[in-house]
C-alpha cells in the first residue's frame, strides 16, 4: 500500500492534536473530531481495541468530573437524587470531541506504520537526534523480548505450582526482578557491542522527502482542518 511519508504523518498528527486544544468549542471542533475519527478509528480498530475501552472510560470520567464542576444551566435530566444540567452535556461533548480527535489522529499514525518505520522515518526525514532515535528503536525492539521473558517467568511459576497472575507485591517482584535484571544485562552487552562497531562515529542517514498522492491528500486534510474557523466563524 502506498503510504504518506512518516514525517508528514507525524506533523499531521501533531497539528491535529494541537487543533483539538485550539478549537475550544463549536462546529470546528466537532468537524476535526469527525475527520480524525473517520481517519484513525477504522485503521486502529483491529490493532488497538484497548484504546476504545480507554476512550469510553475517559469519557465516563469526564462525565463524573463535569457533574462536580460544570453542573450549571438549564435542567436537562432529573432523577430522584440528581439533576443533570446542560453544562454537563456541553462539557462532555467538548472534551469528548477533543479526546476523539487526539485518539483518532494517534491511531492513524501508529496503525499506518510499524515502530521500526516510525523510528527510521523520524531519524531520516525529521532529523531526530541519535540520543532519541537509538533508545527509542532499542526500546521498541525490546518489547517482544520482554513479552518472551514474561512468559518464561510465567511458565517457571506454573511448574512450581505458584499462581501465574501477579496479585501481591511479592508476585509482581518475582516477575519484575528477573525481567529488569535481564534487560539491564542485555543493555550492557548491547552498549559494548555498538561501541565496538563504531556507534559514536556513525552519522544518521538523511533522506529527501518526495511527496506522492497520499501525501497530497494528507496536506489537503490538514489545510481543510486549519481553515475551519474561516468556514465556520
Amino acid at each position: 500500500m502506498n503510504k504518506p511519508c512518516v514525517a508528514l504523518a507525524f506533523l499531521y498528527t501533531l497539528t491535529a492534536t494541537v487543533l483539538a486544544f485550539l478549537y475550544r468549542s463549536g462546529t470546528s471542533l466537532l468537524v476535526v473530531a469527525l475527520v480524525n475519527a473517520l481517519l484513525g478509528f477504522p485503521l486502529g480498530f483491529k490493532r488497538c481495541r484497548f484504546v476504545f475501552l480507554l476512550l469510553l472510560l475517559a469519557i465516563w470520567g469526564v462525565f463524573l468530573n463535569s457533574l462536580l464542576v460544570a453542573n450549571t444551566g438549564e435542567a436537562v435530566l432529573q432523577t430522584w437524587f440528581l439533576t443533570i444540567r446542560s453544562g454537563v452535556f456541553e462539557a462532555v461533548a467538548r472534551i469528548g470531541a477533543r479526546l476523539i480527535t487526539i485518539a483518532g489522529a494517534a491511531l492513524f499514525f501508529v496503525s499506518l506504520y510499524t515502530p521500526r518505520e516510525i523510528v527510521k522515518g523520524l531519524e531520516a526525514e525529521l532529523m531526530l537526534p541519535k540520543i532519541i532515535s537509538f533508545p527509542l528503536a532499542y526500546g521498541l525492539r525490546l518489547l517482544p523480548v520482554l513479552a518472551k521473558d514474561w512468559n518464561e517467568v510465567k511458565t517457571s511459576r506454573k511448574q512450581r505450582g505458584y499462581r501465574t497472575v501477579p496479585l501481591t507485591p511479592s508476585d509482581i517482584a518475582s516477575y519484575l526482578q528477573p525481567i529488569l535484571s535481564l534487560s539491564i544485562e542485555r543493555a550492557l552487552w548491547t552498549g559494548i557491542a555498538i561501541e565496538l562497531r563504531g556507534f559514536h562515529s556513525r552519522r544518521p542517514r538523511r533522506v529527501e522527502i518526495r511527496l506522492s498522492l497520499p501525501d497530497y491528500l494528507l496536506v489537503f486534510l490538514l489545510v481543510f482542518q486549519l481553515s475551519l474557523p474561516i468556514l465556520y466563524p
Partner: peptide, 19 residues
C-alpha cells in the same frame, strides 16, 4: 559523555516507563 551502554540503558528505561 554518554556511552553506548547509557544509550541502551535509556532504551530499557524508555520501554519500562512506556509500559
Amino acid at each position: 559523555g554518554y556511552t553506548g551502554v547509557d544509550y541502551a540503558l535509556l532504551g530499557v528505561v524508555a520501554v519500562v516507563a512506556g509500559i
